[in-house]
Simulated scan of single mutants.
Amino acid sequence: MARTRCSARESGGVSGASYCGGMPSDDLELKLGLETTRTALAVAFGGPEAHERASQAGIVPVRASNKLFVFSDPHKSKQHGYNFDGWAEADEAGAVFDYTGTGPVGHQVLTGLNGTLLNHVAQGLELHLFISDGYVKPGGAKLQRYVGQMTVDSVVPYTERWDHDPQGTLRRVYVFRLRPVDPQQTDIRPDDSVQPAQETSVLPIPAKVEEPAKPGVKSKKTEKHSTSQTTATVAGGERTVNRREGQLVTAFEEHLEKAGHTYSSFQITVAGERTTLTPDLYDETDHVLYEAKGLTTRPNIRMAIGQLADYRRHLDKPETLRVAVLLPSEPTPDEKAILEAEGVALVFQTDNGFAGFPLPVDPA
């Protein structure tokens, strides 16, 4: 069937956007090098009733075309307290773009537009990323540079981060991890990377978040380590391990509460670096920092030892801070010996609770 051509309509002074009979048109081709406006995109892919979408939040579903447009604006992000957007350090799976969800004030939630982004594959929406890059003319509409088609990472779709909103209130935000569908057709620029931290800082963060109550619905607390990830089979079973680790930490938090202990964690940023460090759990009552692993293996134990050594340097009173590894089962005698040699305590889950807790106090 031949494509129907419709008359072009100028929108924003950049790209011609067209529609025909109320149906979207794909005359505006999403390809590398495209610079356009939100209005042009809305009209081209959403039809004539989509003009109002141009002023919406950074996550814009256009269901008429089965697309989800995500707009990253570094300047606006800083105004709203978002300091996490941009290309992060690539990992074994390749490039990843960190994108802070919507919700400028208070704790963000994984519903509404954030829920649409998280579940875009299940909802049949193609995800396309744009970065704000100048203006059509002084005082005109913002230019949106097309980055490429993306997808939310299937293993770790998001991470929780903490920052202050414009009112100075500490709140939780969700940073989604977006992967290029085709790296060769993705505009990856060093200038679009996450900006390095200006200074080293340690931000205490709560272990639980009180979710806003809906009318007629009792408010609930969200576990910091809970996850919506399923146990689908992926390379290395990483998703399953992530889920096990989250469940292990949640179970230990409940154990701490029954013992009358309070707990929290920290968000550590390091001057000159783009990464954010977040220990699994800090027992405030016993001044113990825990690193959890979803599998009891030698590589995991060795990794946990290194992570704890890294975190410890940045926290108050490192000379008195005790550190411990939290495991889902008892390790081998030699693995225990590794921990003992490095001065790292061990707590592991049993059928009746957790062996090794509370940690014995060094008589010295």
Rank of each mutant, 00 (worst) to 15 (best):
H51R: 11
P61A: 10
A40P: 03
E35K: 12
A54C: 10
L28K: 06
T36Q: 07
L32C: 06
S55P: 00
P61I: 07
R53F: 07
E29I: 14
E52C: 07
P61N: 09
G47V: 04
V60L: 14
G47A: 10
A42E: 02
T39H: 07
K31V: 07
A64L: 11
L30N: 03
V62H: 02
R53N: 08
E49G: 13
A54W: 02
L32T: 11
F45P: 00
L30T: 04
A40H: 10
E29N: 06
R38K: 13
D27W: 07
A64G: 05
E52H: 10
L32M: 12
A57D: 07
K31A: 12
H51M: 13
F45S: 01
L30A: 06
A50D: 02
T36C: 09
I59P: 00
P48D: 15
T39R: 06
R63S: 14
G33F: 05
P61G: 07
E35M: 11
A54I: 08
L28I: 13
E52G: 15
Q56S: 13
G33E: 07
D27G: 13
E29L: 11
A44G: 14
L41P: 00
A64W: 02
V62Y: 02
D27M: 09
T37R: 04
P61W: 08
E49S: 13
Q56F: 14
Q56L: 13
L41S: 02
A40T: 09
R38N: 08
I59R: 01
R63Q: 13
A64N: 05
G46S: 11
S55Y: 12
E49M: 09
A44T: 09
E29C: 10
T36A: 12
V62K: 01
A44N: 14
K31Y: 00
A57H: 08
L32E: 10
